[in-house]
């Protein structure tokens, strides 16, 4: 047993190192005064300064955050309403097919989503830019919110709603004061995931973004195609910290509330 666990530890450490090496490699060279990713000459903050001086890049960062927050908020609202609706559908067939349709966008490759949305927007005349990107992000985030909220709704005892109704609560009160508080962890989890989906998306945005508007991923792509710029490295250093905060925040919420990711929790 001793040898197996030693081998196991070595293997895990190796996978761990390989997974993190490129990220730390990027961050390491973000401090390189030589301006390339091969010879570390000396320490400098200049690339970080360059990020904060680049007004175009900063406005792209702001755009990205606005799109992420708005799309997460709106998709959470649509998704929660949808999930509540699905749970109360008594026809099993209908519910099952709704759930299958719900999952289409989760399993579809990004290229398909991007290309088909591009056709859709061109046909109904949505101008490519902020609006098309925001709508796409809402569209691909809705199903993940539904998936995160649904288990919470399903484990909620229907007697809670009945009790509230018997005690004279209006339908609106039942929704805002019984159902929503109960499924809040699922709502938070869905919101967080929608946020990260939006922040991370490249392919769909790339298709529907047009010329005037860019999110960070699209901008990094065009910068990377042009070659190595240590501004990207500095940016990745900053994003790494933001991501860590987001992940830790998510896990804090998830652990406190035992959301679906904590699948092993015995009931």
């Amino acid at each position: 047993m001793g040898t197996t666990s030693k081998l196991a530890k070595l293997y895990l450490a190796l996978v761990f190192i390989i997974l993190y090496a490129p990220i730390f490699y990027l961050i390491f060279y973000s401090f390189n005064s030589a301006g390339n990713m091969s010879n570390f000459e000396g320490f400098t903050w200049e690339h970080y300064a360059a990020v904060f001086e680049d007004t175009r890049l900063l406005s792209i960062v702001v755009n990205t955050i606005i799109v992420a927050l708005l799309s997460a908020l709106i998709s959470t609202a649509i998704g929660v309403l949808g999930a509540v609706g699905i749970v109360y559908i008594t026809n099993k067939r209908l519910r099952q097919s709704l759930l299958s349709l719900n999952n289409v966008l989760i399993v579809s490759p990004d290229v398909i989503i991007g290309a088909s949305f591009l056709i859709l927007f061109t046909m109904i005349g949505v101008k490519l830019g902020f609006a098309s990107v925001l709508i796409s992000h809402i569209a691909f985030s809705v199903p993940i919110v539904v998936i995160m909220v649904l288990p919470k709704l399903q484990e909620m005892s229907s007697t809670l709603v009945d009790a509230a109704r018997d005690l004279g609560a209006s339908r609106r009160d039942v929704f805002t004061r019984v159902i929503v508080p109960y499924i809040r962890p699922g709502i938070f989890a869905g919101f967080f995931l929608a946020l990260t989906y939006s922040l991370d998306d490249f392919a769909v945005t790339f298709f529907v973004t047009g010329n005037g508007f860019a999110t960070l991923s699209v901008e990094i792509y065009s910068m990377a195609r042009a070659g190595i710029t240590l501004t990207i490295n500095a940016l990745s250093g900053l994003l790494f910290i933001v991501t860590l905060i987001l992940v830790l925040g998510y896990y804090f919420v998830a652990n406190r509330a035992k959301t679906p990711f904590q699948a092993g929790v015995p009931k």
Binding site: Y25, L26, V247
Partner: peptide, 13 residues
């Protein structure tokens, strides 16, 4: 959770 583009970009270097 780290942006896909950044990880890919690292490998260019």
């Amino acid at each position: 959770w780290i942006n896909l583009l950044l990880k890919t970009y690292a490998f260019i270097g």
